[in-house]
Simulated scan of single mutants.
Amino acid sequence: MNAVTWDQRERIIALLGDASADPDVRAVVVTATGRGFCAGADLRGGPASAGDRVTGDVARMIRRGAQRFVGAVLDCEKPVIAAVNGTAAGIGAHLAFACDLVLAAESATFVEVFVRRGIVPDGGGAYLLPRLVGPQRAKELMFFGDALPAAEARAMGLVNRVVPAEELEKTAREWAERLAQGPTRALALTKQLVNASLDTDRATAFAAEATAQELCMTTRDAREGVAAFVERRTPSYEGR
């Protein structure tokens, strides 16, 4: 069920960082094989037993682990698509919700499984969910820990589109290719503006928008977009 091990987490964080730095990478798809998207953290690779822990060990583990993992998706400078093929539970659900666009197979489910283990949501769950569905819905999902089918997740606004399982990979590729043909730096700046807007006041958001547009207008793609408009042709973006 693709429970995340330490090695897998570090590899994905590194890949997302590499994607940000590589101008030839224009979009990212996060998906999985098998029956599950991600069943959460692999607890077999967890911290030492309770008797060996000292105060601060768990908080440090969360900061260095689950929070870095979700933060790597939010901070990636390329658009990130989640293609959720099955169960997304715990950190697996938060990994999907952190992505910019979420596709889900009809058979996919999302589970805030933490309450079933007697622990609080980590990996940014209490940050992400209220911003996506509001505090009341977020509490319902987190208090009860019920499995949320893909169709209900879409109705709540957690998923962009639900497709038959056999069409998931094809749809994700189509979306990624469409994004890859876009003005990559403009998309990165747009992602930053939208994510930051949820934590800032209007004056700060407007100032960030003006600065982002100033930066964007120095790119080749912005010049190409304006030229294509004037010349009444389809723009050809390079991602630079």
Rank of each mutant, 00 (worst) to 15 (best):
V113C: 11
V113A: 14
V113F: 08
F114T: 09
F114E: 15
V115P: 03
R116W: 08
R116Y: 02
R116P: 06
R117K: 11
R117D: 04
R117I: 00
G118L: 12
G118Q: 15
G118C: 12
G118S: 15
G118I: 14
I119F: 03
I119W: 00
I119L: 09
V120D: 04
V120W: 13
V120C: 02
P121A: 09
D122K: 04
D122L: 07
D122P: 00
D122M: 04
D122G: 00
G123S: 10
G124A: 03
G124M: 02
G124N: 03
G124D: 01
A126H: 01
A126Y: 07
A126W: 04
A126C: 06
A126T: 08
Y127G: 00
L128F: 08
L129S: 06
P130K: 09
P130D: 06
R131E: 05
R131L: 09
R131W: 05
R131Q: 09
R131V: 00
L132I: 12
L132C: 11
V133G: 01
V133M: 00
G134P: 13
G134N: 06
P135G: 03
P135L: 10
Q136W: 05
Q136N: 11
R137K: 10
R137Q: 15
R137T: 15
R137I: 13
A138E: 02
A138M: 07
A138Q: 00
K139R: 13
K139F: 03
K139H: 00
L141C: 07
L141R: 09
L141Q: 08
L141A: 08
M142F: 11
F143Q: 09
F143E: 14
F144K: 12
F144M: 05
G145H: 14
G145M: 14
D146N: 15
D146E: 11
A147N: 04
A147I: 05
P149E: 08
A150K: 14
A150I: 14
A150Y: 14
A151K: 07
A151S: 10
A151F: 04
E152A: 10
E152M: 02
A153M: 10
A153K: 01
A153N: 01
A153T: 03
R154T: 06
R154L: 07
R154D: 06
R154W: 04
R154Q: 15
A155Y: 02
M156A: 15
M156S: 13
M156L: 15
G157T: 13
L158F: 02
V159C: 02
V159T: 02
V159M: 07
V159E: 00
V159Q: 02
V159S: 03
N160Y: 13
R161N: 03
R161H: 01
R161M: 06
V162Y: 06
V162L: 10
V163G: 06
V163D: 06
V163P: 10
P164W: 12
P164L: 11
A165L: 11
E166Y: 06
E166K: 09
E166T: 05
E167N: 13
E167A: 15
E169G: 05
E169T: 13
K170G: 02
K170P: 00
K170F: 11
T171P: 01
A172W: 08
A172Q: 09
